[in-house]
């Protein structure tokens, strides 16, 4: 979502396509205890996944010759995981939306009323969910990340946030 376009970003809206949230394919996710400095396709299913073993204390695998220990971490209840990817060619998609607006008039069975004014502008961008998950595998170097691991702390945040942002009763 970050961009180097400077000023424009503060006006820009990045639209998340609701249709992509409905039923994206499940995804296999691993959180590794090391930084791989590129974003690109990798033959995970050829080298990594087939090497995972169930050991006496959790899952075992090795990556670049180092031994990793891990376990499945389930997404907290009430939450759902998505992998989102930005779309390219936003101008075309923006125009497509006008025709969608026309269709809206005919489709009256829609339960929620669409916001009346145009929320999408020419310079906006679009993002969509490409996959969903309900758990991921958390890996540590040589040992499973313990209960104090910061990822685990972060996963308790949504329940705390709910209390901070819940409406308070009026006097």
């Amino acid at each position: 979502m970050e961009s180097s376009d400077g000023e424009a970003i503060d006006k820009r809206r990045v639209h998340l396509r609701p249709v992509t949230l409905r039923d994206p394919a499940p995804v296999l996710l691993h959180l590794l205890p090391c930084e791989v400095l590129v974003n690109r396709p990798a033959p995970v299913g050829l080298f990594f996944t087939p090497a995972i073993r169930q050991g006496p204390d959790g899952l075992e695998v090795s990556f670049r010759g180092r031994s990793l220990r891990g376990e499945e971490v389930v997404v907290p209840p009430g939450l759902v995981g998505y992998v989102m990817t930005e779309e390219k060619g936003e101008v075309l998609l923006g125009k497509q939306d006008f025709s969608e607006g026309l269709q809206d008039d005919e489709q009256e069975e829609q339960e929620l009323v669409e916001p009346p004014e145009a929320l999408e502008r020419d310079f906006d961008r679009f993002i969509g969910a490409t996959a969903s998950f309900s758990s991921f595998t958390l890996w540590g170097l040589e040992t499973i990340p313990g209960p104090d691991a910061r990822v685990r702390g972060a996963l308790t945040w949504p329940s705390l946030a709910a209390a901070i942002h819940a409406q308070v009763p009026e006097d």
Binding site: L28, L31, L32, N39, P41, V44, F48
Partner: peptide, 16 residues
């Protein structure tokens, strides 16, 4: 957190 990355299906995503 420092030193983390994702394997997302058949791809790698740095940063974690």
């Amino acid at each position: 957190e420092k030193n983390h990355s994702w394997f997302i299906n058949e791809s790698v995503q740095s940063g974690g």
